Simulated scan of single mutants.
Amino acid sequence: MHIDIDTDVCIGAGQCALAAPGVFIQDDDGFSTLLPGREGGGDPMVREAARACPVGAITVSDTAS
């Protein structure tokens, strides 16, 4: 799984960090970022976090094995 956060679109609502706190945090400016080492996801709540984003800044895609 690959997670992409469009930082030009993110408004810092924090819904991703609420939905999947083991993957997303808010940086010092309040915008979404991935916790170190979580770039590939793995948390079952990642897709829910992407759906919860009010501006659609998070894209989750499956990676080829």
Rank of each mutant, 00 (worst) to 15 (best):
P44T: 13
P54C: 12
E48G: 03
T7H: 13
E39W: 13
P44N: 00
Q26C: 10
G30F: 04
I5V: 09
G12T: 01
A17R: 12
P21M: 10
A57Q: 11
A64T: 08
A19P: 08
C10A: 05
G56I: 00
P21Y: 10
G42Q: 02
V46G: 01
C10V: 05
G22D: 15
I5C: 02
G12I: 01
S32Y: 05
M1E: 09
G42S: 13
A64Q: 12
A49M: 03
V55Y: 08
T7N: 07
S65N: 12
A50T: 11
V60C: 08
D28L: 09
G12L: 02
L18S: 04
P36C: 04
A13E: 14
A20K: 07
V55Q: 06
R38F: 06
I25T: 14
C53S: 15
P21E: 02
G22A: 01
R47D: 08
I5E: 00
C10F: 02
P54K: 12
C10S: 01
A52T: 12
G22M: 07
R47M: 00
G41F: 00
S32N: 03
D29K: 11
L34G: 04
R47F: 05
H2Q: 15
G30E: 05
D8L: 06
M1A: 05
L18I: 06
A57K: 05
L34F: 01
A19R: 15
